[in-house]
């Protein structure tokens, strides 16, 4: 399977009033298409920093980053924005929905910045995704009117709308109780089963257990990198045609 993400000797140094903080001290990592990676490690070990690098939200101090075939470590701000809008999906700990928008409008946002003309077709696609995460009856609700779990499901739908190469999630269940967490993790697993590559930061072992691969970090290094043996790659990859067993498509028709 091809590597969708490949970073080579990535270094990120923050300069704080003459103090240097080495958040990443030369991290190299490859992630295959269809993988489900959990990033773990103590607080301050550089997990979020790494995820932000992978999410093209920030540029490294040194090192290289290939997303698919593209070298994104050399790109300027506008190009990075374009990469984010086309190839990446984000899920945050605090959901980060736009409070002024309804559920459907929130899901539409990445398309908007991709420069796609919003029309009945895109709207249908967004409604499809909302229905897929179980919010088909909440299309015109605002984030304030939804529970945390529901908001996070909107965020998942939003992360899927541009049919991204990789979904990046920073502690997606950090604000949720264990039952809702399981529900969210089931959704993510479902997406992974449909062929989506997921990279997720978490502190909790039972959340990491949903992943196929667990990477532990410490002081800006990768400490360990293990496969979860009860969940292996390959078994579900037959379904990469883009449809899950429940009949939901992950690729927008004609977009």
């Amino acid at each position: 399977m091809a590597d969708i993400v490949r970073i080579i000797d990535l270094v990120k140094i923050y300069y704080l009033e003459s103090v240097e903080v080495q958040a990443l001290r030369g991290v190299s990592l490859s992630v295959e298409e269809g993988d489900f990676v959990a990033l773990m490690g103590p607080s301050g070990s550089g997990k979020s920093t790494l995820l932000n690098q992978l999410g093209c939200l920030d540029r490294p101090t040194s090192g290289q980053y290939f997303l698919g075939d593209e070298d994104v470590s050399e790109m300027d701000d506008d190009q990075l924005s374009e990469i984010r809008s086309k190839y990446l999906g984000f899920i945050f700990q605090s959901y980060n929905l736009l409070p002024q928008y309804t559920v459907v409008e929130n899901i539409e946002v990445p398309l908007l910045y991709q420069g796609i003309k919003l029309n009945a077709q895109t709207r249908e696609w967004c409604i499809h995704l909302a229905t897929m995460v179980g919010l088909g009856d909440r299309l015109d609700h605002r984030p304030m009117q939804l529970s945390g779990g529901q908001q996070q499901r909107v965020a998942i739908a939003r992360a899927l709308v541009n049919d991204p190469h990789v979904i990046l999630a920073d502690e997606p269940t950090g604000n949720l109780d264990s039952r809702t967490s399981d529900e969210i993790m089931e959704r993510l697993q479902q997406l992974n089963d449909m062929g989506k590559t997921i990279i997720m930061v978490t502190h909790e072992n039972d959340i990491a257990a949903w992943a196929k691969r667990v990477i532990r970090m410490r002081d800006g290094h990768i400490e360990s990198d293990e496969r979860n043996h009860h969940r292996t790659i390959g078994t579900k990859l037959a379904k990469i045609d883009g449809t899950a067993g429940n009949g939901f498509a992950l690729r927008p028709a004609g977009l």
Partner: peptide, 16 residues
């Protein structure tokens, strides 16, 4: 500010 961050993460360019 938060909203701006969200939009940027979702692909908004500076000029947007």
């Amino acid at each position: 500010t938060r909203e701006i961050g969200i939009r940027r993460a979702l692909g908004a360019k500076r000029r947007d």
